[in-house]
């Protein structure tokens, strides 16, 4: 299952867990399943069906421009990062 690295500022949503194994073959599925398990993640990450503009997602070490349709593998690593802004 893809592994989510939970940012420290979001860990209170999942009882302090730092990493979570969540089912899914693309980012949309993973976030939906994450929210089923720990309510509130989707609210923090998604707005109007898209990743919030001030958050970026890295899959396997690379920031993805594809957002919710980014495919993930069974052993993909997923990171939620603050979008690099202003720079």
């Amino acid at each position: 299952m893809p592994i989510i690295f939970v940012p420290s500022l979001m860990q209170k949503l999942c009882n302090g867990e730092q990493k979570l194994l969540i089912e899914g073959t693309n980012l949309r599925q993973v976030i939906d399943n994450l929210d089923l398990q720990y309510t509130g993640f989707k609210d923090r990450l998604v707005e109007d069906g898209k990743i919030k503009p001030n958050i970026s997602v890295a899959v396997d070490g690379e920031i993805t421009p594809l957002g919710m349709i980014q495919k993930v593998d069974t052993n993909s690593e997923i990171h939620f990062l603050p979008a690099i802004s202003g720079g």
């Binding site: 919030k52 503009p53 001030n54 970026s56 920031i63 979008a83 690099i84 802004s85 202003g86 720079g87």
Partner: peptide, 11 residues
């Protein structure tokens, strides 16, 4: 959405 200097789209 505006692209910033790193090419990232930012709000």
């Amino acid at each position: 959405m505006v692209e910033d200097g790193t090419g990232t789209e930012i709000e």
